[in-house]
Design a protein around this nucleic acid. Sequence first.
DNA 1: ATTATATATCGGCTTTATTCGATATGTCAA
DNA 2: TTGACATATCGAATAAAGCCGATATATAAT
Lengths: 99, 99
Amino acid sequence: MFKALSNKTRLNILQWLKEPEKHFPKQGAHLPKEVSYKGGVCVGDIQEKAEASQSTVSHYLNMMQKAGLLESVRYGQWTYYRRNEEAIHQFTEFLKTEI
Amino acid sequence: MFKALSNKTRLNILQWLKEPEKHFPKQGAHLPKEVSYKGGVCVGDIQEKAEASQSTVSHYLNMMQKAGLLESVRYGQWTYYRRNEEAIHQFTEFLKTEI
DNA sequence: ATTATATATCGGCTTTATTCGATATGTCAA
DNA sequence: TTGACATATCGAATAAAGCCGATATATAAT
């Protein structure tokens, strides 16, 4: 997780996903709001905001998921990424006591 | 700080320095106990525990200091490194609210 | 002064991360 | 079933991190 967070873009993504409505206002074109915000934000929207190439962002999201920071759901042709709050909480708990 | 912590050895060092008496029991040969533990642990002792070369450990300690995790004091020919508790606390506070 | 010890810095090699464009895969719509 | 779109994966080039031995510097002891 430290490795995953030791990159500005990836840290930004994690923070953006804390408030998806705020940082991805035009999100939700493909799906009803309730569903899409709950399910996370799709790769394309994150890519646009991150201003990196599609492959880079896809790679980042994948590694953040492997690190446990994110989880993903697929709705049709879109993959929605959202925070893995439980794992993040465990991480911050670890930090509180062990760091 | 994420970068500095995204390495097992450096994370270990930070944790060891939380309880120097426990992890560096034979430390304090050169100086009275009160002084040396307060002042931190010398590079040689950290190096021995970390099982990396002298230059690597010196480099690690220097980068951890630059990141704000550690601070150092020089007593004669020894450099003592200890945790920068204030900066670490600020960091964990940031994590609590922003991550 | 010379020598020994502790730490820092330098140079260089190896490994890993970053990042992209191109291509593959998977899904939807016509 | 073909074409369009979203995402994932591949391959490769460049940058950064990891790491060490050798050397420099600073201090202490003789």
